[in-house]
Design a protein around this nucleic acid. Sequence first.
DNA 1: GCAATGACGCTCT
DNA 2: CAGAGCGCCATTG
Length: 130
Amino acid sequence: MKGSCAATLGRLGIRPVERRRESTWEKYYAVIRRIPRGRVATYGQVARMAGRPRHARQVGYALYTLPQGSKLPWHRVVNATGGLSVGRVVPGGDLAQRFRLEREGVAFGLNGRIALKRYGWGQSSARRRR
DNA sequence: GCAATGACGCTCT
DNA sequence: CAGAGCGCCATTG
């Protein structure tokens, strides 16, 4: 893929202003886009896969500036505790995320957290029950 | 350029 | 296992 980056970002609804830092967050978006359906990844995991360990916060920043019309599966990104931190900036956003994940087959624990050991991206995939 | 903020992670209590 | 504190680093004001 060559200049498809700009086209892809345009498809995602990224504005010119965000294009400037695309080189920085592009990797995060690419990784998130690679997250398989019915699986979740932590911010640190995404940052690590993007080749930027310890940048978990910046991943959250990237999603923070993410437009609503983006087709990015942001709902598959959770924190290390398997909880949802979206509600910090989007009231009820965590609820929507939870609903989306449950619809994909991701189950939540009684404490409202996801069993990353089972649904974590790169974990024992063969262990997941139908 | 400096100071404050933040959709986080790890460690200690 | 749950809660609080400190650290990391890029974006924003």
